[in-house]
Design a binder for these strands. Structure first.
Lengths: 142, 142
DNA sequence: CTGCATCCTCCTGGATACTG
DNA sequence: CAGTATCCAGGAGGATGCAG
C-alpha cells in the first residue's frame, strides 16, 4: 500500500490524527447515497480499467479495446461515453482517413487516478489471498 | 493457481522512483483480467459501502442496513456473504435471544480500507463536479 | 478505424412472505 | 433480529450487422 501522503493527493493528510475515522464520520445515510451514486457510475469494473489504462497517456479506441481484453466493443463505447459525460475522459477526433480518435483523462479524471490505481494495485496484490479465502470458504461450507 | 511469482512479485517498493507509472506498467492484458475479476467482486457499490461502514468498528446486520440506506435486506445478505467468502469480512454469531450477529473487517478487509475510503472520499469531493459535467454534456448533446 | 443500432439472453436486485 | 426462499421486472452486456 502506498504511503498515505501520496494516496490522496491534495486531500487532507490521511495520516492526520483521526483522519481514519473522518471518512466514516462522513458516512451518514445522505453521504451513502452520494457515494453509492458516484460508485454506480465510475465504480464498475470497465470504467476502472479504462481509467487505469488511460493513466499514463492517451489511447485510441482499439488500443484500449486490445489492452482491456475481454471488453466488448459495445461496452467500451458505452463506458467511454459515460466517462466522457461525467467529465472524466476527453474525446479528441482526428479527422483523418481512417479516422483516429484519442481518449485521455481530463483534470477530473486525473484526480481519480490515484484512488483508482490504489484499488487496482490492491487487487493485484491481494487477489491470491482472496482466491485462497474463497477456496477455504467453499471447502468448508460449499 | 496464480503464478504470483512472475505476475505479481510481492509489492515492489512503493516509494521507488516511477512508482506512479508502475501501476500502469503492470496493466498487461493478463493483469486486466485479474483486476477485473477482483473488481467485479469487491468493486460494486454495495461492497464498497459495507466496507466503508465497517471501517471503524463492527456492526450488526440491521445496523448496517440502516446505515446504508437504500440497500435491500437481500442485497445486504448477499454482499456480506460475498465479502465473507472472499475473506474480507468476518461474521460472529452471538447465540443470544434474539440472535445477534456482528460483522467486522478481517485483516485483509482492513487492508482494503485505505483504497476504498480514498475512492469514497473522492466520490464525496467530486460528485458535484460530475453532476455539472453531466448537465453540460446533456445540455450540449442530449 | 470508429461507432452506432438491433436483438436476445442472463443476471442483478427489489418486493414479499416465511423460519428460527 | 437475522436469515432464507420465491417471484419477477429491468438492466447489463455479448453477438452481429451496417455506416461514415
Amino acid at each position: 500500500m502506498q504511503e498515505g501522503t501520496s494516496l490522496i493527493p491534495d486531500h487532507t493528510d490521511v495520516t492526520a490524527p483521526g483522519r481514519d475515522t473522518a471518512g466514516a464520520e462522513r458516512m451518514m445515510p445522505e453521504n451513502c447515497r452520494i457515494v453509492g451514486g458516484v460508485l454506480a457510475r465510475i465504480g464498475d469494473k470497465w470504467s476502472v480499467l479504462v481509467v487505469m489504462n488511460l493513466s499514463e497517456e492517451s489511447r485510441r479506441f482499439n488500443e484500449l479495446k486490445r489492452m482491456i481484453d475481454g471488453i466488448s466493443q459495445r461496452m467500451l463505447t458505452l463506458t467511454l461515453r459515460g466517462l466522457e459525460r461525467d467529465g472524466l475522459v476527453s474525446r479528441m477526433v482526428n479527422p483523418t482517413i481512417p479516422p483516429r480518435v484519442d481518449y485521455a483523462l481530463t483534470d477530473l479524471g486525473r484526480s481519480l487516478r490515484q484512488p483508482v490505481q490504489a484499488l487496482g494495485l490492491w487487487a493485484l496484490d491481494n487477489h491470491a489471498a482472496i482466491d485462497q479465502a474463497r477456496e477455504r470458504y467453499d471447502g468448508a461450507k460449499g
